[in-house]
């Protein structure tokens, strides 16, 4: 019984981490109809960047994060502006394949630079147990993941919903022609969207690196998690990522509780496939026609 409660609590908290891993993917899909296959590798790249800044600045976590976000926003802008924007009007496949190619390049570049060793990002709260009672114990890292994820998701939702730029981004997703006629530079809005997605990927990269070890080839693994989150929650729905993350986290932890630890990831996949089959457009779908 204690173990079951523990599994549920851990599953939900893990879901927060998964949600933020999938957030950038969902945003990019919702706004420009692009499935960014490079998302997983980009996120792991963020983990490495944060790690590098961490060794340089000796673990000042805010400074690490801000610098990493700055780097990734620039990278995201260049990536969108010079690669994706050039092919995004030519149908779905060229853009998809560009992100695929970039994904391979990033993964191999990381492997060349950092080698194949396991890495992690050290922080003060990673190993502390915040709650530890007879029934349940909660690690600081997991709790921080969840809180940060919720905060980021709420802030991003508000930004997209309420601000002038958020409106312009939604307008570009809704009707490119009308948006251009209102004076919106839609391609620039796509680039802004990618930059925001990269910023969330940085936060995700930090949290992942702080919670688990990561390798240069961990990207695809997180890409699948992101896919799962987004697919369950509905492509393009920002609040949906939180729901998707929690369902996926619970599926994994409960799978591991009932069938053994070896089946943690497997049961996550099975739940994803079942949900994909039952409601092919996700639970809170907001996918844009593109």
């Amino acid at each position: 019984m204690e173990l079951l409660i523990q599994s549920i609590v851990t599953g939900i908290l893990l879901g927060g981490l998964y949600a933020i891993v999938g957030l950038g993917l969902s945003l990019v899909f919702g706004i420009m109809g692009l499935t960014n296959i490079a998302h997983g590798n980009l996120m792991i790249m963020c983990s490495f960047i944060v790690m590098v800044f961490g060794t340089v600045f000796n673990g000042n976590i805010i400074l690490m994060l801000v610098l990493a976000i700055a780097c990734m926003v620039v990278f995201g802008f260049l990536f969108q502006n010079f690669l994706v924007n050039k092919v995004i009007d030519k149908g779905p496949n060229p853009a998809l394949l560009v992100t695929f190619g970039v994904s391979i390049v990033i993964q191999n570049a990381l492997q060349l630079i950092f080698g194949a060793d396991a890495r992690s990002i050290k922080s003060a709260f990673a190993t502390v147990n915040v709650v530890s009672s007879d029934y349940v114990s909660i690690s600081g890292a997991y709790l921080a993941n969840f809180v940060v994820a919720v905060v980021v998701i709420v802030l991003l939702s508000l930004f997209i919903k309420r601000t002038r730029m958020g409106r312009a981004i939604r307008a570009s997703a809704n009707n490119v022609r009308a948006a251009e006629l209102m004076g919106v530079n839609t391609k620039l809005m796509y680039s802004v969207t990618m930059c925001i997605a990269m910023a969330t990927a940085c936060i995700a990269g930090l949290l992942v690196g702080n919670t688990f070890v990561f390798y240069p080839y961990s990207g695809p693994q997180y890409l699948i998690i992101a896919f799962g989150v987004v697919v369950i929650g509905g492509m393009g729905s920002i609040p949906g990522t939180l729901l998707g993350g929690i369902i996926l986290g619970l599926a994994q932890l409960l799978g591991s509780y009932f069938f053994g630890t070896g089946y943690q990831i497997f049961s996550g996949y099975i739940v994803m496939l079942i949900l994909l089959t039952v409601c092919p457009a996700g639970l809170l779908s907001n996918a844009k026609r593109k």
Partner: peptide, 10 residues
């Protein structure tokens, strides 16, 4: 623009 060119998701 023609009437269809409004932001119908807003």
């Amino acid at each position: 623009p023609e009437g269809s060119c409004i932001f119908d998701e807003m």
